[in-house]
Design a protein around this nucleic acid. Structure first.
Length: 932
DNA sequence: AGCCCGACTTGTCGTGATAATG
DNA sequence: CATTATCACGACAAGTCGGGCT
């Protein structure tokens, strides 16, 4: 593989990357940067110095550097530079290790169905060239050694009642021993529930005890903070000025912010069930927008000229590239885009320099601007970077699913075979195939399906009533097809796979600013019956086939327009909008107001950069969190109801990691988030506990009992007063008001940042309080436990595998056998010591005589086996409903994991699988001392 | 000031691939 | 070597949140 080099632009760089980080890919896109800076400035309230920027941690290598530049200086600091590195990583790493979620399925209620085709993924491509640096980076990490890893027990920190059967002890202890805190928490508060999680509220008391570890942290931090002109505490006061009663406690907390999280959240008992009693009706209007931001001045810092991007070449396609190009930017090569070079260069620079606001800050101009600019060949390169996401974009569009192939199998209606046209048969088949899913028995699904199918059947078709339909013949045909497929030889399967790959290859890549990047979902969704989650009102509706005329393509101005793969048809529209990252979109046939987008894959630098910004924003919250907590604590007793509601809602979001809770339409499943909680979802349990029970995103149940501070308890009681079950608990609130408020507390702050913050802080804290001993496998177990803790906080659940109970009982049997063996060995030992002959074996034959020593040895071996098995079982039981993958992908700052791996010499491949390694390429060169 | 469009992140599940087991 | 358990990864649904328009 070739390595590509790349450039990174550094504008300010001062040494930024000096050390280490490898950068690859293009320099960065200029576009956005966090914008925090700009916002920061704006904030009126805070003194600016204090403005939030977090000082960088010195320790962290690059990061610090990143921030460094700007932050230090003055307020203006604007841009943060991020250098994204990308790598592509690939490499040989194997994945294996970690566990993450996986599949399994069914839970009682909901379950999905399968879908027919899928494809092999594989993609070989991963082998995109690694950059040199990367290599180096990786070198830093030890390579992995053995595959096996984990497993052990993950001991659960939390527990649920049911699990009780299994004995507890297990590993937790190990883990916990070291960690006093957790235990404290648990015990403290909750009754049976899981403990650890339950939190104690932010209550400081407890926490204070915890502090210890944290203190150090703070300390460090403080150093860093030097930069800030104003110490947090000041800020704190600032905001909190009014002086909440609790303040003290908080203050104390401040010192150790991390701690908080621990307490956080309780676990819940999971199990998804759908609750049903929601009442929700009132939906409030969404409303208001938040304050706008205008960052006005951006000043670019001039500086280096960027090097032209290099293309990674690959086999690929784009006309432009040829192998040699490595060093030449594509732009150059492309004739069409001739002007592009300039653009790219200039823009990049510009953008970087500019402080951009978070997402598109640019006001209107998007469209106008872009087009115009573009066409004009961007004249405004420099500062224009605002909402710009790329300068050149080349791709081949999307691939459509193959046309329907009629099978001719006739279903029965009222016992008689029925002739169907291919279109009618296609829909009948969609349903037939879902026969053994539970959708097939949901009235709403059946009704929606029949309504849509009837339209295709036409008015006069004999088929009228679902009850008279018998799809069995088609279902059986499908089963046979599946079986056939399964029986294919390995070679045949392989051949099919390759063929598919060849067909898809051209769609898999896009060239963004001269860099080849993987496209995320270039396959247009095939027609099917809509499978909404939970009690979705539209389940069963026909999701019609998408055609080229439904699709809007977005591509660089000079790039060749992808040819429409279906002869005789054409794209709905072709745009050249460089302020967005999508390559194509179409309207969702189920909800025509919504869109389905084709984006770049997670491994792309565009995504990587925004991911990094997300984590930087969460890290910034660290500097404000104490202040924010003090503020809302004070407002728990505000006379202003709206303020009180905002305070309590913020508290719940912070402490329980609840989602914001936007309003939903009636044609969506009835689920809630913080702002949309209904009275019935929160029960008061005297003296100061709250019991939450509601369906959240994806209709996953959130059930948790939490001890809260008394003022919160009382406030909730007030909010419930005079309302019936289905009414909104927070009637004066909605997400835009809440976020607008949060933005006043910290630039760019929104409700979801708390989830990221709490998740990452928890991981960082848990990983760092562990001692360094233990072998790699044990360390991985520690990581998993931390990961699990986060998953619980975020309520990331998975359905229990169908075979779970079977597997458990099988393990139980084995366990019983082992115990019997142990028992017999012990009896034999006693006899042996007394000089009596051993007992006879099960088969009646005498066993060969063993010495007492030998017996003892066997006993200890067997006991060890039993213990291990108990641990494994407990872990398995414990994790049966916990999905670890979601938090790893979306909430845990990968730099925490990477730095930890470097420090403890755990191969990063044990923690991140291949996709994660690619996705987090930007984090691989983090300094080992990085702390969130 | 609210509504709604638009873009992008987050989340669960199914399924094929791969590793572990008997 | 055949099965079964686990893992990786894609599919696609369902959130969040900002911005522009009225």
């Amino acid at each position: 593989m070739a390595a590509d080099a790349c450039i990174k632009p550094s504008f300010f760089d001062d040494g930024e990357d000096e050390d280490g980080p490898a950068v690859f890919k293009r320099s960065n896109t200029a576009s956005k940067r966090t914008g925090l800076s700009s916002e920061v400035k704006k904030l009126s309230q805070r003194p600016d110095g204090s403005s939030g920027r977090r000082a960088s941690d010195t320790p962290n290598g690059q990061n610090s550097s990143i921030l460094k530049g700007k932050s230090v200086s003055s307020a203006k600091v604007s841009s943060i530079k991020l250098s994204v590195t990308s790598s592509n990583a690939s490499t040989s790493i194997a994945d294996k290790s970690n566990s993450s979620q996986q599949s399994s399925e069914i839970n009682e209620e909901k379950k999905p169905w399968n879908k027919p085709q899928n494809e092999p993924n594989e993609d070989s491509d991963d082998d995109r060239p690694l950059s040199v640096r990367m290599a180096r980076a990786s070198g830093a990490l030890p390579k992995c050694e053995s595959p096996n890893v984990l497993k052990g027990d993950g001991s659960p920190v939390c527990k649920q009642s049911d699990k009780s059967k299994v004995s507890i002890k297990k590993s937790d202890e190990d883990f916990e021993d070291n960690i006093p805190l957790s235990s404290k928490y648990q015990s403290a508060t909750l009754p049976n529930y899981q403990s650890s999680n339950l939190l104690k509220g932010l209550g400081s008391h407890v926490r204070s005890s915890l502090k210890s570890d944290k203190t150090k942290v703070n300390i460090k931090k403080s150093d860093e903070d030097l930069e800030d002109d104003i110490p947090l505490s000041l800020k704190f006061r600032f905001k909190a000025s009014a002086g909440p009663s609790n303040k003290n406690s908080y203050d104390s907390d401040e010192d150790k912010p991390l701690a908080c999280k621990l307490q956080q959240n309780g676990s819940s008992k999971w199990k998804n069930e759908q609750l049903k009693s929601p009442k929700g009706l009132n939906k409030r209007p969404l409303s208001e927008s938040s304050t706008s931001v205008q960052s006005s001045i951006k000043k670019p810092k001039p500086s280096v000229t960027p090097v032209p991007p290099i293309v990674k070449q690959v086999t690929v396609k784009a006309e432009a590239k040829t192998d040699d190009d490595d060093n030449v930017p594509i732009a150059h090569r492309m004739k069409k885009t001739a002007h592009s070079d300039n653009k790219s260069i200039s823009t990049k620079k510009a953008t970087k320099a500019v402080s951009a606001p978070f997402k598109k800050t640019v006001k209107n101009s998007k469209k106008l601007a872009k087009k115009s600019k573009y066409s004009k060949s961007m004249k405004v390169p420099p500062s224009s970077g605002e909402g710009q996401k790329w300068t050149s974009l080349v791709h081949n569009g999307v691939i459509f699913p193959p046309p329907y192939k009629p099978h001719g199998v006739k279903m029965l209606y009222n016992g008689q075979p029925v002739d169907l046209t291919p279109e009618q048969e296609e829909v009948a088949t969609m349903f037939a195939v879902m026969k053994d899913t539970d959708y097939a028995s949901k009235p709403r699904f059946l009704e929606n399906f029949m309504n849509d199918w009837r339209q295709i059947l036409g008015k006069n078709h004999i088929i009228k009533k679902f009850e008279l339909c018998d799809f069995t013949p088609i279902y059986e045909w499908h089963e046979r097809e599946k079986e056939k497929k399964k029986q294919m030889s390995a070679e045949e399967k392989k051949a099919l796979k390759e063929e598919k790959l060849i067909q898809e290859e051209k769609f898999m890549w896009a060239i963004v600013d001269g860099v080849k990047e993987k496209v995320g979902n270039f396959r247009v969704e095939p027609p099917g019956l809509f499978r909404g989650r939970g009690e979705h009102p539209k389940m069963g509706k026909l999701k019609r086939r998408i055609r080229p005329s439904d699709i809007t393509i977005n591509i660089g101005t000079g790039a060749p327009i992808p040819e429409c793969p279906i002869p005789g048809e054409s794209w709905k529209e072709v745009k050249h909008d460089n302020t967005v990252t999508w390559l194509a979109f179409w309207n969702d046939p189920i909800n025509t107001k919504e869109f389905k987008y084709v984006f770049l894959a997670a491994s792309s630098s565009l995504k990587g950069q925004s991911d990094k910004e997300k984590y930087e924003k969460a890290r910034l919250l660290k500097d404000y969190i104490n202040n924010i907590r003090a503020k809302y604590t004070k407002d728990f007793v505000s006379k202003d109801v709206t303020k009180r509601q905002i305070a309590v809602a913020t508290y719940l979001i912070d402490k329980l990691a609840l989602r914001a809770g936007n309003e939903k339409d009636d044609d969506e499943a009835d689920t809630v988030g913080c702002c949309t909680l209904k009275v019935e979802n929160v029960e008061l349990i005297p003296p100061n506990k709250l019991q939450f029970d509601f369906l959240g995103k994806d209709s996953i149940r959130y059930f948790n009992m939490v001890e809260v501070e008394l003022p919160v308890y009382k406030a909730i009681g007030q909010f419930r007063e005079g309302k019936s079950d289905g009414e909104n608990l927070f009637d004066k609130l909605d997400t835009s008001k809440l976020n607008a408020h949060l933005k006043e507390l910290m630039p760019g702050l929104t409700a979801k940042v708390f989830r990221t913050y709490n998740a990452s802080v928890t991981l960082d804290e848990m990983l760092n309080r562990e001692t360094k001993d233990g072998d790699v496998a044990e360390r991985i177990v520690i990581y998993q436990q931390a990961n699990k803790e986060v998953a619980i906080i975020c309520n990331h659940q998975r359905s229990v595998s169908k075979s779970h109970s079977t597997q458990m009982s099988r393990l139980n049997e084995k366990m019983d056998e082992l115990k019997a063996v142990l028992d017999e060995l012990q009896k034999d030992l006693v006899r042996s010591k007394k000089g009596k002959p051993l007992l006879k074996g099960a088969d009646g034959k005498p066993k060969k005589n063993l010495s007492s020593e030998a017996l003892e040895r066997k006993i200890s071996q067997t006991s060890a086996k039993i213990e291990k098995m108990e641990r494994d079982m407990k872990t398995k039981e414990d994790l049966k409903t916990v999905a670890l993958g979601t938090s790893k992908i979306n909430y845990l700052d990968p730099r925490i994991s990477v730095a930890w791996c470097k420090r403890l010499e755990v191969p990063i491949e044990k923690i991140f699988n291949k996709s994660l390694l690619a996705k987090f390429a930007w984090a691989m060169d983090v300094d080992p001392s990085f702390r969130f």
